[in-house]
Design a protein around this nucleic acid. Structure first.
Length: 232
DNA sequence: GCATTAATTGGTC
DNA sequence: GACCAATTAATGC
């Protein structure tokens, strides 16, 4: 296996919570206590109902966080990439994960145990405060998502999802930098893969998007934004 | 190259 | 707008 350097000091994920506070002296000891995991594309890196093992930070790769509903239907709760945190929702409040996570591509994870996380939170107020802001922001996003699912129709939700993917993952040569199947987009937008296919077909006919291989290009972002603006 | 999986399209409720 | 079925395209082994 290729050796991967996950040393926090040389890590380029400046949005990572650990990296952001690495300049603090107290942080130095803690970062020595992290573990690393590799999760291959398609593999689950967090299982619903399994005991919580601290917090995970994505060093490289992308992960979908999902909740399994009734009849085994999956709902993608969040999509994450380099520097993002997963497993934070259950942390401290429960001893088992209420969500699962699977790698969308080969992913390298950094993990801090419950004990280490508690030590960090109790000894570094700057970190804890930042974390609190993060939780508040996540709650805000979560509330917005509830509204979206409830008030937007399927087409609007798919458009909203595409705009989100562009904003979150960026693009190269106008192609959004993430590969998701129709089903995964559907699981995120709260619909079915057939609906996503149909809506994509319409959007293509309308000249709003185009596909190059598996990648998606948004041709008229402003027009798409206007279509969903009243629900934002 | 073959087998499995994903995408597309049409139809039914 | 979800679910099912049939066909075709793509991907993995």
């Amino acid at each position: 296996m290729k050796r991967i350097n996950t040393d926090c000091a040389t890590c380029i994920n400046t949005n990572c919570f650990i990296k952001k506070h690495l300049h603090l002296e107290k942080m130095q000891d803690f970062v020595l206590q992290k573990n690393n995991f590799i999760c291959k594309k398609g593999q689950q890196c967090m299982i619903e109902g399994a005991p919580i093992q601290g917090l995970y930070f994505i060093h490289k790769g992308k992960v979908k966080v999902l909740k399994t509903g009734i009849y085994g239907k999956e709902h993608i709760v969040r999509l994450t990439q380099e520097g993002d945190t997963i497993g934070f929702r259950g942390f401290g409040t429960s001893n088992r994960y209420h969500i699962g996570a699977a790698a969308l591509e080969d992913t390298v994870l950094c993990n801090f145990s419950n004990e280490v996380m508690q030590n960090i939170l109790k000894t570094i107020p700057e970190f804890t405060y930042d974390m609190m802001l993060f939780y508040a922001e996540e709650l805000n996003k979560s509330e917005n998502n509830v509204k979206k699912i409830a008030q937007m129709n399927v087409r609007e939700r798919v458009i909203d999802t595409l705009l989100y993917l562009l904003k979150k993952f960026g693009h190269t040569n106008n192609l959004i930098d993430i590969n998701l199947s129709r089903k995964e987009i559907a699981d995120f937008a709260g619909t079915t893969d057939e609906q996503v296919t149909r809506i994509f077909s319409s959007l293509k006919k309308e000249g709003l998007i185009k596909m190059v291989g598996k990648k998606i290009s948004l041709l008229q972002v402003d027009k798409m934004q206007r279509e969903i603006i009243e629900h934002k």
